[in-house]
């Protein structure tokens, strides 16, 4: 347990001390599902609405399609995404994962009618017990040629206020942090979002309001 907390701490240090530019932040729960299953993930936040539909042939990989519409910039993204489990450590009361997420696609700008090549790479670490949750995500995005490479960081901590058996309604209270260094003189430079996660069977829902009073609504359905 101490080792995993140490990993989380090291990731946090990188997160805190990080970079100069950022745009797209993604901190999805469980980006790979159980073998031979489909997953639909939806995200709505201050920045965008995002749909991610993917198939997991095994526990190490998932491959799927992403569509995103950005709120303020009239941008639409069409991309393929490959998630890969690099590392998993199972303990009796905990599980830790390190995921790699690669996104390749096209970013369309509606106003100027231009399209750019899009690349996004995320490295995400999570550690959870039945009571506690910790996740950190670091990544880089390329939306050429103007924006070039940018970096992004996010982190999340959570606690389950009560424990119930499998199949019943699980509740998590969480706090998400996002760092957007490129948002100079903006309220979006550092955002924190308290949220509630509700989880039952194959369905997960998250609802929150961020420090700028913008809504966050995420959902995951497994098939």
């Amino acid at each position: 347990m101490i080792k995993h907390l140490l990993y989380a701490f090291l990731f946090s240090l990188i997160f805190i001390s990080s970079y100069e530019n950022t745009t797209k932040v993604s901190l999805n729960a469980r980006p790979i599902s159980y073998p031979e299953s489909w997953t639909l993930m939806q995200q709505l936040n201050w920045e965008k609405i995002n749909l991610h539909y993917h198939y997991s042939p095994n526990i190490k990989n998932s491959i799927g399609f992403v569509y995103a519409k950005y709120d303020n910039e009239d941008e639409q993204l069409y991309a393929g995404q490959w998630n890969h489990l690099l590392f998993r450590k199972n303990e009796k009361k905990s599980q830790a994962n390190l995921y790699s997420k690669l996104q390749l696609g096209q970013l369309d700008l509606e106003e100027s009618d231009e399209s750019y090549f899009h690349l996004d790479y995320q490295l995400s670490y999570d550690w959870e017990t039945r009571r506690h949750f910790y996740a950190v995500s670091l990544g880089t995005t390329y939306d050429g040629p103007e924006e070039s490479f940018t970096q992004n960081q996010s982190a999340r901590i959570g606690i389950a206020p009560y424990l119930v058996d499998y199949g019943k309604l699980h509740t998590w209270l969480m706090l998400q942090f996002e760092h957007h260094p490129n948002e100079i003189d903006s309220d979006n430079r550092l955002i924190w979002t308290p949220l509630i996660r509700l989880f039952k069977g194959d369905v997960l829902i998250e609802l929150g309001v961020n420090s700028n009073q913008k809504l966050l609504f995420n959902s995951i359905i497994r098939f």
């Binding site: 599902s33 159980y34 998993r88 959870e128 069977g201």
Partner: peptide
């Protein structure tokens, strides 16, 4: 089993 911590795990 080790690592069985959430409903998704149980479902799996």
């Amino acid at each position: 089993v080790k690592g069985l911590v959430c409903d998704f795990c149980a479902r799996s």
